[in-house]
Amino acid sequence: MSETVEIRLTVNGEAVTRRVAARQNLVDFLREDLGLTGTRAGCEHGVCGACTLRVDGAIVRGCLLFAAQLDGARVETIEGLSDSGEIAVLQAAFHERNALQCGFCTAGMLITAAELLARGGVPSRAEIRDFLSGNYCRCTGYHAIVDAVEAAARTRAGNGPP
């Protein structure tokens, strides 16, 4: 239980070295050791998607990874993606369309949506709904989120609403 591991990784572009408990998951590491509280645990079963973040460019569930697995990894969280401006178009679309209420799922939702948008083109509403089905939202009913992702995809594709 008290076994620790030293890890060196990059978090939001900054080099980080820490000694972590072998059993600590990535969400707890980010929140407790680095103070990056934008990544949130919703179910700790890898189901709800609230803890979605990027490791080495791919979206993952932070609650299903141990921090000790991340030696040498490149981690990007909502804080880093906000500061870099990479998901600004999506954030603006979510803001405009009120595609969030309590905000607890929002970071994970945005990071998942960014993955879909990175594939290019303008996905259909059904494709958006399907892609976001691993991210639970209890407030919005999803309609506004689908609208916002669709609008952001159109903006990125260089054309406005149809």
Binding site: H95, A107, L110
Partner: peptide
């Protein structure tokens, strides 16, 4: 748009 949604959109 909700002014207080900005912090939520940035995980803040």
């Amino acid at each position: 748009p909700r002014p207080n949604a900005r912090r939520l959109l940035q995980g803040r």
